[in-house]
Amino acid sequence: MRVLRTLVLMIAIASACFPLAAQAQALVADLSSHLVAITTGFAGTDVLLFGAVEGPGDVVVVVRGPDEREIVRLKGRVAGIYVNRKEMAFSRVPSFYQVAASGELDKIASAAERARLEIGTENLRLVPEVERDPATVAEYRAALIRNKEAQGLWGRNVAKVASLGARLFRVNVYFPSNVPVGVYQVQVFLFHDGEVRAAQTTPLSISKVGASAEIFDFAHREAAAYGAIAIAIALAAGWAASAIFRRV
C-alpha cells in the first residue's frame, strides 16, 4: 500500500516536472490514505488529497459518502405544543458530502455541468419518494440540506484546493467523529472554460478497526451473548463498588 502510494506520488511529481512525458494524462490525484480507520481514540481526521494537472484549468473535488434514506419532518403547533405534523422521505441521500475547488464554483464550471455532476448541495438530485408540488419539495429539500450541514456531515462551504505552482494541488478533507462508515467516492475534476477536461474517481473506505470494530461486530453477530455480557459486566461493577465501599 505504502509503496504504491509513494509510486503514485512520484508519478504525480514527475508528470508535473516533465510535461511532455505525461501529455496523455491531464489529471492525476491520490489520497494520503485510502482507509480511514475508526479506532477507540477516533475523534475525526483529515485526509489529504493531492495531485497534478496538465495544462490550464481549475480543480474541483467532490467527496460523497454512501447513499441512505432520510426522512424530513415538519413540526406544527397543536394545542400549544410543537408536534411532528408532516414528513417527506428522500431515498439516495449521500450520508456525507463535501466540495472543494481551486476558485469560485460558478466561475469554474457552467451551471449545466454543475447540475450534471451534482457539484454543490443545491445540485444534488434529492427526489422525494412520493411526488409533491415543487414548492413544497423545495422547502423540504432546503431543510434536509440545512440539517445535514448542522450535523457537520455536509460541507456548509466549498473547501479550498490549494495550488502549489502551476501544476500541483492539494486539499485537506475533514471527516468528523460522527462520520458514517462505508465506501466513499472521491471525484476529482479538471475544468477549463466551464467544461470538464479530465476526471478521476478514487474510492475511500471508512471503517471501524480494532476494539471498536470487534465490539460492533460481536453486538450484531452474537446479540444474545452480547446482551448477557453487558448485564454481567454491569452486575460485577455494581457488586465491586458495593464491596469496596463497605470497607471504606
Binding site: R69, E70, I71, V72, L74, K75, Y82, A143
Partner: peptide, 13 residues
C-alpha cells in the same frame, strides 16, 4: 411550547 429554531428535523430511516 417554545418555537424551535428549526421546525424541520431529519432522521435516518
Amino acid at each position: 411550547v417554545v418555537t424551535p429554531a428549526d421546525l424541520f428535523s431529519i432522521s435516518r430511516g
